[in-house]
């Protein structure tokens, strides 16, 4: 065959180092430093109530991140992540108010319980595709507040009354108020979990999760064990959202079944879509969105905040169909192009 049109340079060419794709070390350091300053600034800039709101926004962001792992990256639609949020919150609340555990020790327990529950939900999820899974998880979220009120567990959960708990005190050497301390705790834990999730997503497992979402048959042909990946993704996702629940319990110092209605699950879903599906940074935006936009809506119209919220939501999705994260991606792409040309 004289027609050797293919493979010119390819075979002989030496592998090009991949490093050029990464950002230089000093830029990365600058980004981290900027992030830390941005995260700490509210301690001085915001008074108690607004700091509390921001704390809750970060908690919601963490919960949205959990949802993003299973729905965004792995493509298993969950409309019931509020259930894991509730389980996490109640784990912490029960251990703190009934057993006088310190908040810190409740976290690993809450993580383990939520991961186990998530793993358990992951199994029936294997047999339920798309809309059916969405409905099943929806049913779970509807059931949870009622289960929490049930007589059999009332002694533990406090029934309709719920449970009160107390914020952990700041350590003596730090000159911060309990509100500031809880903000610091939430931001630190969220930062660690965002970092670990980012690691998870950018490597072998993250690729497998996305591959399974994009084309399950091909993923299997690449040697990916779909059942194992999907159930574990559910477990990790539930763990992250559950930790967010635990944090919300101590930040609010109160849990009650009516704080965990189906609306929480829907809110998390909205946050995921508004922030950006399958985006780590988008989850952060999503958390800010679901916490602050309803407030903005209410300040515009006290009579019909829901209408305003809806209009803002539709407007935003019209302007940025792939969420804040997509907008950010397009902006940076444009900046880069502008910079090089």
């Amino acid at each position: 065959m004289s027609s050797a049109t293919g493979l010119p340079e390819g075979v002989a060419a030496a592998p090009v180092p991949v490093a050029e794709a990464g950002t230089p070390a000093w830029q990365r350091l600058l980004l981290v430093a900027g992030g830390v300053i941005l995260a700490l600034a509210p301690l001085w800039l915001l008074e108690s109530f607004h700091l509390f709101q921001l704390t809750m926004a970060v908690i919601m962001a963490l919960a949205v991140l959990g949802l993003n792992i299973v729905t965004g990256y792995n493509g298993q639609i969950s409309l019931g992540h509020g259930a894991f949020f509730a389980v996490g919150a109640y784990c912490t609340a029960i251990l703190m108010s009934h057993f006088d555990w310190s908040f810190w020790w409740t976290l690993p327990v809450s993580a383990a319980v939520c991961a186990t529950v998530g793993f358990g939900i992951g199994f029936p999820a294997l047999r339920l595709a798309g809309h059916y899974l969405a409905l099943t998880t929806f049913a779970l979220a509807v059931a949870v507040p009622q289960l929490l009120k049930h007589k059999a567990v009332e002694d533990w959960t406090g029934g309709v009354q719920g449970l009160f708990l107390v914020k952990p005190d700041p350590p003596a050497f730090l000159p911060v108020t309990p509100d500031q301390w809880i903000y610091l705790v939430v931001v630190s834990i969220a930062a660690v979990l965002f970092f670990l999730t980012w690691n998870l997503i950018r490597g072998r497992i993250g690729r497998a999760l996305m591959a399974t979402r994009d084309h399950p048959t091909a993923a299997e042909a690449m040697g990916m064990d779909i059942a194992s990946l999907k159930t574990k993704a559910f477990a990790v996702s539930a763990l992250v959202t559950g930790i967010a629940g635990s944090l919300s319990a101590v930040a609010i110092e109160f849990v009650a079944p009516d704080s965990f209605t189906i609306f929480v699950s829907i809110t998390l879903f909205v946050g995921m879509v508004a922030g950006g599906v399958a985006s780590i940074l988008g989850s952060l935006f999503g958390g800010l969105f679901v916490l602050f936009v309803p407030n903005i809506a209410e300040s515009i119209s006290k009579a019909a905040p829901g209408v305003i919220y809806g209009i803002i939501l539709i407007g935003l999705l019209f302007v940025m169909p792939d969420g804040f994260a997509g907008l950010l991606r397009r902006l940076t792409a444009r900046l880069r192009r502008g910079g090089t040309s």
Partner: peptide, 13 residues
């Protein structure tokens, strides 16, 4: 994928 062995925890850390 099959040439690797690392799991969820190893990847997260």
């Amino acid at each position: 994928h099959v040439t690797g062995r690392s799991g969820f925890i190893a990847n997260a850390f």
